[in-house]
């Protein structure tokens, strides 16, 4: 992370609403590149909406969004996204390796066949995510943690520079969470940027470099330890819930 490199994600004047109700108002923030960054905040704070708006998934959103200093349309193949598990069709007939192969589609479009280099990227990604032995397994027979690893493998196979994950640690046990965080940390050490929506405040300051605290708008943004202070959390979560949650 240097002062010269453009932010992994930069938002200026971003607003978004669902069904007429404003969820985000005037978001101005930069999430640095080369860092493991968390987007945190209470339920309904607009965490998922923030990243979806950045990715162009919220039709009502307005404002300027830049990934690595460029509009998304120019750097689409450099940005990988892992949606929340709820957003994925649960009973879809698909094997783990087929999910990971989708990570190569941004490079191949609608028609071009996957080549040997793509197969290699898929195999490497599955090995890195620890799911090589699950390749032929139907997705609906995997545990929550195994599924999350498969989706992370799809993002790895994309060879993107920015990875965006929406609640990647729900429905996974603490051991898997630690393993996934280890993989994400490794990516950042290699110069990639990772942005994760996260709800567990306990792990943010120790595991993440950067945090953006949301409650409809950005309450604080910066190094994780400086953002997750009692004063900020009180503003985000309200009293008395804030004090107890912040200290657990």
């Amino acid at each position: 992370m240097t002062a010269l490199s453009p932010a992994a994600l930069s938002l200026r004047g971003v607003s978004a609403s669902y069904g007429g109700a404003a969820v985000l108002r005037d978001i101005d923030t930069d999430i640095p590149s080369g860092a493991l960054s968390a987007v945190v905040g209470p339920n309904g704070a607009g965490k998922s909406t923030l990243i979806k708006a950045a990715l162009g998934l919220v039709p009502s959103s307005r404002g300027t969004v830049r990934f690595l200093g460029q509009p998304l349309a120019r750097v689409r193949h450099r940005v990988a996204y892992v949606p929340q598990q709820d957003a994925v069709a649960k009973d879809f007939p698909i094997t783990a390796v087929q999910v990971v192969e989708m990570g190569r589609y941004p490079h191949r479009g609608w028609f071009r066949r996957l080549r040997a280099a793509d197969d290699e990227a898929v195999a490497d990604a599955m090995a890195d995510a620890g799911v090589s032995d699950l390749a032929r397994m139907p997705l609906d027979e995997l545990s929550g943690g195994q599924r999350q690893r498969v989706f992370l493998a799809r993002a790895l196979a994309q060879h993107a520079d920015v990875l965006i994950l929406d609640e990647p640690f729900t429905a996974v046990d603490t051991r898997t969470e630690a393993a996934l965080l280890g993989i994400l940390r490794g990516l950042c050490d290699g110069g990639k940027s990772v942005i994760a929506v996260h709800h567990d405040l306990r792990t943010v300051s120790e595991r993440f470099d950067h945090a953006t605290l949301l409650a409809g708008t950005v309450l604080a943004s910066g190094p994780a330890r400086e953002v997750l202070t009692s004063a900020h959390l009180e503003r985000a979560y309200g009293i008395p819930l804030a004090a107890s949650r912040a200290e657990t």
């Binding site: 990715l55 996204y81 949606p83 957003a87 989708m102 589609y105 479009g109 028609f111």
Partner: peptide, 18 residues
């Protein structure tokens, strides 16, 4: 490819440019 992907994971199908 776009039908398969958007049926399985519509948000990914959109963000990956499919």
């Amino acid at each position: 490819r776009p039908l398969h992907t958007s049926t399985f994971d519509p948000e990914f199908a959109e963000t990956s440019g499919l």
